[in-house]
Design a protein around this nucleic acid. Structure first.
Lengths: 187, 187
DNA sequence: CCGACTCACTTGACAATGTCATTTGAGTGC
DNA sequence: GCACTCAAATGACATTGTCAAGTGAGTCGG
């Protein structure tokens, strides 16, 4: 037996999942409210019962994507050496960028940063990342600037990889090698 | 007296300029073919005489934006010390990212990298940048990987600045300081 | 000088889409 | 058992990208 609120929550989840799938499959242009409704098994107007507009639905997708990264960071237990945790954390981020390029772009898009729920998920993930960086460099004072440099650089590497602007032929280097160069220079 | 081909070329220029203005003013959503036509003094269907579709018009805007950066790099004459030229080159890129954030995002977007004309402008600009990096580090062999790291990192810094994900309160650092940290670590 | 032609541009039309107002109907509390 | 709530469905509308057909100013051979 499903209560009304349970059904509504399930519909909301189905809408976000459907939007995420369509985003992964065909980019942001493929995420139409009609397609989302159809895949979620509801009508085209149903999203308006859960989100004020399409942008908020996409923000929910971005929030969920950030939460997935955050949960993956939770699995990096402290019994590993800090440098290994940093490497795994960056590898996890690069993995999202490569497996779900459209979702990744959405996670770092401007509208996402303006939705409180998304901001909270981003902030929590960044805090986890900063804690790892602090353990690596051993200096909490400098963790934030250095963490910002690493995060921004990795984000730029993935973004240029996905957009086709970072090719191995042109630059004689891969994204993974660039990340290794980067973390080799911050220690 | 304007010949027919001159008039057509002028219309094409007006369309690209109008699209660039609308992009700067209201983001990519504000660039509708009707608005572009109106601002260029032609009708909504006129762009189809010069571009196969809207994406090609946006690619032309990206191309022109890259060419502007390239021309600015041309002004960095070799009588400056290499490190100063690198700093000025990066400052120029950051300036575009801050003054024209939407155009900047377009320049690094995936569709842009698939249009030959845009690719040529990008490639030329990247070559100029690589030449400067080679002069700075004095090792042509390592210029490409290091240049890639710097370019990707700066791109990530600007992108996170523009999207609101890189705030001074959160990370205790500014984008400019990150760029200084970066070039300090590659020398 | 003029008639036919070219081609950039205009206009009408259409399907797709985001959004809102209205309606419907299943679950809920008295 | 009945009125009520609220999620969902439906109808409608403006906007947009795109294409087919039409138009008219510039061009060229005679």
């Amino acid at each position: 037996m499903v209560s009304r609120v349970e059904s509504a929550a399930a519909t909301r989840r189905a809408l976000v999942d459907a939007a995420a799938e369509l985003l992964d499959e065909g980019g942001v242009d493929a995420v139409t409210l009609r397609a989302v409704g159809a895949r979620a098994g509801v009508s085209r107007g149903a999203p308006y019962g859960h989100f004020p507009d399409k942008e908020h639905l996409l923000a929910a997708v971005a929030t969920k994507s950030w939460e997935a990264v955050s949960e993956q960071l939770d699995t990096l237990t402290a019994d590993r050496p800090p440098s290994e945790r940093l490497q795994l954390a960056l590898a996890g981020l690069m993995d999202v960028g490569r497996r779900r390029p459209h979702a990744y772009a959405l996670m770092f898009s401007a509208p996402t940063a303006e939705h409180p729920e998304a901001l909270a998920a981003v902030s929590r993930t960044h805090d986890q990342f900063l804690a790892i960086v602090a353990d690596v460099i051993g200096d909490p004072q400098r963790a934030r600037p250095i963490g910002a440099l690493v995060m921004a650089s990795v984000q730029g590497i993935i973004a240029m990889e996905n957009s086709g602007h970072l090719t191995a032929e042109k630059w004689q280097v891969t994204g993974d090698e660039l990340v290794r160069m980067l973390i080799g220079r911050i220690a």
